[in-house]
Every structure is written in structure tokens, then in C-alpha cells.
């Protein structure tokens, strides 16, 4: 038998009229695959979302429980804090009042201890000069000292300057001392070797 004779060895039994249309089968497969794929993707998203919701629900439940357990304690803490703030404000108010003034004894002692021997004080005045309308934070005070010194003008002026420097270093005055001004330094009437003075010390209590 020749090789060409072998090619027709299998008989073709296909009944072409009963076979389905191949194009139609392809179309059915493609449409079903696309729609099912889309449905599966959507379902996947839905399941993911649902799972997330379940987790969120569990978290909400757990947080609600935690909050409920701590709420009573929290209310008590807030009340205690409010009471603490109220009492602190009250104490602060008293402290502000107390600290807004000058301790007169400490002021006397500070000025007396730093007074040069030649300086004689005749009067001592303390005045609160704060201007409430300026809404300043601190209280401003002026201490006016009137007196005399037995010396010439230069020595008197020098003595007052030394006095000012000494006051600045005083432990009580140092934080509140702002300035020292010689308001008046004149020769005393009828006395050749006496200068009268008025010194103003400015203090600020913040």
C-alpha cells in the first residue's frame, strides 16, 4: 500500500448537521465567563466589605465595653479635676492678692541695712502707682525717701548712687527693683555742709 493510501485510513463519522455552531459556543462561553467573572469580583468585594464590617462591629462592641467599664471612673475623675481646678483657682487668687503687695517689714529692713552711714532719712513713703486702666501684669510701687546728708553735692550724689547699687543687690529687693531716681538733691537752708534729698525707688511686683 502506498503512503498516500494510509491518509484515508480513518473514516469521518462526524454528522456535520448535528454538530453545534462553533461560533455560538464560543460566544456562550465568553459571555458566561465575563458575567460570572464580574459577579465573582463583585461578590469578592461584598464579602471583603462584610468581613470588614464584622471586624468593625467587633471593635465597636469591644470599645463600647471598655468605655462602659471606665465611664463611671472617668466621670469621677472629671469631677475631681473640676474640684481641683476650682480650689486651685481660689488659692491662686489668694496668693495673687498676697503677693501683689510689698512686705513692709522686709522693705524697711532692706533699705535700712543698705543705708550709707551719712544718709539720714526723715520720711519714708510707699505708694502703689499701678494704673489699672493699663492692664499691666505687675503692681508698680514707688518708695520715696526724704532726708539729708552732711556732705557736699558730689559726695552726696556719689553716696546716693552707691546706695542704689547696694539696693539692687539686696536679696529681697533684687527681684522687684526696677529703678532708683534722685528726684531732689539741694543744699539745705542755712547750713553750709548739708544736702537734702528725695530718692524715689521704683519696684515692680509681677
Amino acid at each position: 500500500m502506498s503512503r498516500s493510501g494510509n491518509r484515508r485510513w480513518h473514516t469521518n463519522f462526524r454528522d456535520v448537521s448535528k454538530l453545534p455552531n462553533l461560533e455560538e459556543v464560543k460566544q456562550q462561553f465568553m459571555v458566561s465567563a465575563i458575567v460570572l467573572g464580574l459577579a465573582l469580583v463583585l461578590m469578592g468585594f461584598y464579602i471583603m466589605g462584610k468581613t470588614e464590617r464584622i471586624i468593625v462591629d467587633e471593635q465597636i462592641h469591644s470599645l463600647e465595653q471598655t468605655f462602659a467599664e471606665k465611664e463611671a471612673n472617668n466621670i469621677a475623675n472629671i469631677a475631681a479635676d473640676a474640684a481641683f481646678q476650682e480650689k486651685s483657682a481660689f488659692i491662686q487668687e489668694i496668693d495673687d492678692f498676697y503677693r501683689s503687695g510689698v512686705d513692709p517689714v522686709a522693705l524697711f529692713l532692706a533699705i535700712s541695712s543698705k543705708r550709707p552711714k551719712d544718709l539720714v532719712f526723715e520720711s519714708f513713703r510707699l505708694e502703689n502707682v499701678s494704673d489699672a486702666t493699663l492692664n499691666e501684669e505687675g503692681e508698680l510701687y514707688e518708695v520715696s525717701l526724704d532726708g539729708f546728708i552732711r556732705s557736699g553735692y558730689d559726695e552726696a550724689f556719689q553716696a546716693v548712687k552707691v546706695f542704689g547699687r547696694q539696693l539692687e543687690k539686696d536679696p529681697y529687693l533684687e527681684p522687684i527693683f526696677r529703678d532708683l531716681e534722685v528726684e531732689k538733691l539741694t543744699r539745705g537752708a542755712g547750713m553750709s555742709k548739708m544736702m537734702t534729698f528725695t530718692i524715689v525707688i521704683k519696684l515692680e511686683i509681677s
Partner: peptide, 19 residues
């Protein structure tokens, strides 16, 4: 002729409804 596609469309409608 498209049973799977019909099922898929039903699933899509159901999911959208649930959503």
C-alpha cells in the same frame, strides 16, 4: 443558551441589592 451568564447577572443584582 446562557445559564451561567444568567446566574452571574442574578448574583450581580443580589450583591448590588445587598450593598
Amino acid at each position: 443558551k446562557y445559564p451561567y451568564a444568567v446566574a452571574g447577572v442574578a448574583i450581580i443584582i443580589a450583591v448590588i441589592f445587598l450593598w
